[in-house]
Write a protein that binds this DNA or RNA. Structure first.
Length: 257
DNA sequence: ATGACTTACAGGGTAAGA
């Protein structure tokens, strides 16, 4: 079973790229972020036509998350994190698929920092950490996947010095990520490749894709009930190399059975 | 310090991304 996360940077602008990737790689479960579209225009029919059921949580203009399942309909457990009734950002959706609980998240960027956007990022992260604790200990297999907007270490970006003041590299952001992992989660890509530089995002500027000047910010976290099934992990870089690509590439894990 | 790109919203320039 292959589970992937993909920040599409606009589901309408990226639909043909998304469908091409789904048909070529046939992931079983997909977490999407940055739909940038209200719920009523989510392209459910086109996605269904290539064999996927979906649940989605969008909004006008930005943010937006969805979970797709090949040959199945995800059963939605929640939309939005607990304690976030006044949060207008669509950044979290959770569903059960093939016996696995799937949390799909789009963590706030937080730039510029310091400032209100960074405060919002850290507050959102704290709510995620509290909710993740119950998921981690549930005894059920859980994957928590998405665009975390955190560069975990200096090995996870092509040039950490250039971005020392960026919200994604701040000690507070990294400390939150480490506290999340300390609950018992496994960062699947880093577990599969303990040393290598692996990137999941290349911005559109200065030919960064062509020069492989990337960042690792899309993560798949497995709880202890799921970790024993981790068989492989990777990044579908070919998707980033297509014309009209998202600035992120699909990032995935393969599970036994 | 800024801008380099891209998307959405809107029908032009601004907000947002990371």
């Amino acid at each position: 079973m292959k589970i992937a996360t993909f920040n599409v940077n606009g589901i309408r602008s990226r639909l043909s790229n998304l469908l091409e990737w789904l048909e070529r790689e046939t992931p079983d479960i997909v977490c999407l972020q940055e739909l940038k579209a209200p719920d009523e225009v989510f392209p459910a029919l086109a996605i269904q036509a290539v064999g996927y059921g979906a649940v989605w949580h969008g909004q006008k203009g930005w943010n937006g998350v969805a979970i797709l399942a090949r040959g199945a309909n995800p059963v939605e457990n929640r939309r939005g994190l607990p304690e976030a009734d006044d949060d207008s950002h669509s950044r979290y959706i959770e569903a059960t698929v093939h016996g696995i609980s799937v949390g799909c998240l789009y963590l706030p960027n937080g730039n510029p920092q310091p400032g209100p956007k960074f405060d919002y990022k850290l507050a959102w992260f704290e709510r995620l950490i509290r909710h993740a604790s119950t998921l981690c200990d549930s005894g059920q297999p859980v994957v928590l996947a998405g665009d975390y907007n955190v560069v975990p270490t200096d090995v996870d970006i092509y040039n950490a010095r250039s971005y020392q003041k960026d919200a994604l590299l701040q000690p507070q952001s990294r400390e939150c990520y480490q506290r999340l992992l300390a609950q018992g989660w496994t960062d699947a890509l880093r577990a599969r490749f303990p040393e290598e530089r692996i990137y999941t995002f290349w911005d559109y500027f200065r030919q960064h894709w062509e020069k492989n000047s990337g960042w690792r910010i899309d993560h798949l976290l497995l709880n202890p009930a799921l970790k024993p099934r981790l068989a492989d992990a990777g990044v579908d870089k070919w998707v980033r190399g297509k014309t009209n690509a998202s600035d992120h590439a699909p990032t995935w894990v393969r599970l036994a059975a």
